[in-house]
Design a protein around this nucleic acid. Structure first.
Length: 596
RNA sequence: GGGCUCGUGGUGUAGCCUGGCCUAACACGCCGGCCUGUCGAGCCGGAGAUCGCGGGUUCAAAUCCCGUCGAGCCCGCCA
């Protein structure tokens, strides 16, 4: 095949651009052969680039040489076409593509490169195994949908930089090779060649650096920054991901909220043309746990949880009463129209709630003449009536109940709510529900390690009204942290930070860190706090997740050009991979693999 | 660490439950030929699969069993 290595002409248009106004002009196009329709004497080529598709016609009449060469074109060949733009003959217009009223007479054709037959067609709505798409990611990205997603990503980042700049924030880079500070996610480690036996860590977030930038007087900082966490993957979790990291001095929670609300308003407008409503509603942690069984509630539909502990307390149903005696609770929800569920469907839901440690799922069908349930006999009529009165079901609905410790009830019933909401089609996919969750507890008790841990992170300031509780009842202390939630997904998390050395020390001690550990891990930071640290607050927003929401994707992989598989492998490069003995030796590393 | 779903020509599926009629079917793609208005072009012809891998059961395995690898979703984990 005769290739033209260097096109002799400069591109005049992208494939998606020419229209009726360009008819008569000579155009020079570069692109990939999307499809070839070879009629023998007449050949149609759909030429594609990132902007779209345009039809090129080759024939004896137009140019015999180009026509002859066009027979050799195949899918994904890279070509340069020079030709005159003309209006398509009447009746042959294609209303399905933006350039469908015109076509290019193929006067000159240069084949810039050939291509193997692609493993899958370059089209949206391809039904191909994730494995294949990820291995040939560069072909996957040729699909218009993927390109659009990356374009959205680009526009979103641009919008962030413009807005933050206008608000007086400086984008400042922080190190990628940094210090391991356990507490939190597992670190990715990097061995040091110059310091045998020592390691850098990749940042889980630039948390301490941005706080030190506040101490440095930067005042308003932001960064679109990669973060790394060596934990298992999910549809919404990749080991390396991007945050919009923000920190501001002399600011409180409301200042942060105002900046973020303005930022998102601007981003959604400029990126996908959607107007969002600000300010976002605020919920306390306690409220969302009670009502939705989740600290990141999806408020696009109702079906809220209902505490019925007091009503069922004096029933004969042991499953409920025993749990209540042990300090547990009984909560339920109304599943609209679900009285018609079969035994096996209920069984499936029971299996589902067991994933979240619930021991079972009690149910009552609501019929026009009362309730129908295997456990009905344990409840006096008054109790049933009280349940109906509180939960307010309609005939045809189903009541589901879970009895257990509060955390399990919230988890199981909250997830049941989400599943039913999805399966019953109660979620309006066009809706965007932004909300803040505030007043998180400062600590949570770690059963296994028998100690308090930070709910957010150890640099989060306690609610100053609760300071007196730090010693007597740490579990009751509220923090000045906050989460941003969109459509039931955690999008951001931040807090007012501790800027006082003594308070910071105290928190470390409650977390059961010895003086020695504190010094070893965070000594440098405590030292920094001593030199006039201003009060400051900040937040980090999950950029990939935001882009995913704007792009309407189901997985983070949809908006990351080269993502990892669920087992953390990059299928394009094959990373992670083994390295040579020499490399290991230089790093003073011996690999100790278990024999299989 | 655990649970569930999936793995059959290049791609997507059928066949698997109920083993033999499978010499593995279909669509798209691919290769060759014909073809001047197609745009999922059409028509004719053709190539292409040790049914992810290993072991077992059986006269006989794509099909049943065990193990293993890979992809996905979830639990744990993710300050």
């Amino acid at each position: 095949m005769e290739l033209t290595l260097l096109p002799k002409r400069k591109r005049t248009h992208y494939c998606g651009e020419p229209g009726l106004e360009d008819v008569g002009k000579e155009v020079v196009l570069m692109g990939w052969v999307h499809r070839r329709r070879d009629h023998g004497g007449l050949i149609f080529i759909d030429l594609r680039d990132r902007t779209g598709i345009i039809q090129v016609v080759f024939s004896e009449d137009i140019d015999p040489e180009a026509h002859k060469l066009a027979h050799r074109l195949r899918s994904e060949y890279v070509v340069c076409v020079v030709g005159k733009l003309r209006r398509r003959p009447e009746g042959t217009e294609n209303p399905n593509i933006p350039t469908g009223e015109v076509e290019v007479e193929g006067h000159e054709l240069y084949i810039l490169n050939t291509s193997q037959t692609p493993p899958f067609p370059i089209e949206d709505e391809v039904n191909v195994a994730e494995e294949v798409k990820l291995k040939y990611r560069y072909l996957d990205i040729r699909r218009p949908r993927m390109f659009r997603n990356l374009l959205i990503r680009h526009k979103a980042a641009l919008s962030v930089r413009k807005y933050m700049d206008e608000q007086g924030f400086l984008e400042i880079e922080t190190p990628v090779l940094t210090k391991s500070t356990p507490e939190g996610a597992r670190d990715f480690l990097i061995p040091s060649r110059l310091h045998p036996g020592k390691f850098y860590a990749m940042p889980q977030s630039p948390q301490l650096f941005k706080q030190m930038l506040m101490i440095a007087g930067i005042d308003k900082y932001f960064q679109i920054v990669k973060c790394y966490r060596d934990e298992d993957l999910r549809a919404d979790r990749q080991p390396e991901f991007t945050q919009i990291d923000i920190e501001m001095s002399f600011a409180d929670r409301d200042d942060v909220f105002a900046v973020v609300e303005g930022l998102l308003e601007r981003m959604f407008k400029e990126t996908i043309g959607v107007e969002i409503e600000t300010p976002f509603p605020r919920y306390t942690y306690q409220e969302v746990m009670d009502r939705f069984g989740s600290d990141k509630p999806d408020t696009r539909f109702g079906m809220e949880l209902c505490d019925v502990s007091d009503i069922v307390a004096d029933s004969e149903f042991r499953v409920f009463t025993e749990v209540l005696k042990k300090g547990g609770q009984v909560k339920g929800l109304v599943a609209p129209g679900c009285a018609k569920l079969s035994r096996s469907q209920i069984e499936e839901l029971t299996e589902f709630v067991k994933i979240f440690k619930a021991k079972g799922l009690a149910w009552m069908r609501v019929t026009p003449d009362g309730v129908d349930s295997p456990i009905k006999k344990f409840f006096p009529e008054g109790t049933i009536n009280a349940l109906l009165e509180r939960m307010k079901p309609n005939p045809g609905d189903m009541l589901f109940f879970i009895a257990d410790q509060p955390k399990i009830v919230a988890d199981a019933l909250g997830n049941l709510r989400l599943r039913l909401g999805r399966e019953l089609g109660l979620i309006d996919e066009n809706r965007l529900d932004f909300l803040w969750v505030v007043d998180f507890p400062l600590f949570q008790w770690n059963e296994e390690e028998n100690r308090w841990e930070s709910e957010h992170h150890p640099f989060t300031a306690p609610n100053y009204e609760d300071l007196h509780l730090l010693d007597e009842d740490p579990g009751k202390v509220r923090s000045q942290s906050y989460d941003l939630v969109i459509n039931g997904m955690e999008i951001g998390s931040g807090s007012v930070r501790i800027h006082d050395t003594e308070l910071q020390r105290k928190i470390f001690r409650i977390l059961n860190l010895s003086e020695e550990e504190i010094q070893l891990r965070f000594g440098f930071f405590l030292e920094a706090l001593k030199y006039g640290a201003p009060p400051h607050a900040g937040i980090a927003l999950g950029f990939d997740r935001l882009v995913m929401i704007m792009a309407g994707g189901q997985s983070l992989r949809d908006v990351i050009p080269f993502p990892k598989t669920q087992r953390g492998i990059c299928l394009v490069t094959g990373a992670p991979s083994e390295v040579t003995e020499e490399q290991l030796k230089e790093l003073h590393i011996k690999v100790d693999l278990e024999e299989k």
